[in-house]
Design a protein around this nucleic acid. Sequence first.
DNA 1: ATGGTTGGAGCCCAA
Length: 261
Amino acid sequence: MKIASWNVNSLNVRLPHLTRWLQEFAPDVVALQETKLEDARFPDDALAALGYRSVFAGQKTYNGVAILARTPPQDILAAIPGFEDPQKRVLAATLGEPGSPQALRIVNLYVVNGEAVGSDKYAYKLRWLAAVRDWLQEELRAHPRLVVLGDFNIAPDDRDVHDPKRWREKVLCSTPEREALRALLALGLHDSFRLHHQDGGHYSWWDYRLAAFERGWGLRIDLALVSDALRAQCVAAGIDLAPRTWERPSDHTPVWLELAS
DNA sequence: ATGGTTGGAGCCCAA
């Protein structure tokens, strides 16, 4: 079973890319971020024609998350419980019969970007991450077989940064952000990519400016985490660079993991 | 060189 995450940066613009990628990569589950679509405009019919059920939580212009799956997502939650937030950044769903031993819980996160260290948006990012930590603790209690994936807007360590000196203590790489990510991992979650690859130089996002992709100036900020209970089942993980080479691409490319069935 | 591109809205904001 292949489970993937992709920040599409406007599903309206990227539906042709998503369609092509679903056909070529054939994932079983996909978490999308930055759909930038109100729910009424979500292309669920087009995705159903490709064999995917969709659930989504969107808004106009900004943010927006969705989960696509070959089986119907259930027990959908589209907000962090107890955290007041108009921004549509989280979506959780259960695949398989809820409560059954093989049910899989998927949590899709579009983590706050944070703009710059010390800004109001950065403070919101850290508050948001603290609320997510408390929520995921509850999700793990209820659903031991948990996958948490999305655009984390945090490079876990310097192996995940093309030029660590240039990025030192900058937003996406600062120590408080990395500590907030470590607090999520400390709940009993594992970065699937690092279960299978130890070297640096693998990235999931490249700035549109300065031809960053062509120069290899990337960061690995899109992650797929698996819970303790799924760790042994996670047999592979990776980053699919192909969509970033297509014409008019998203600035992010899909990341994925594979669970043995 | 502290550079500039993209998407969506609507005459700038967010990334």
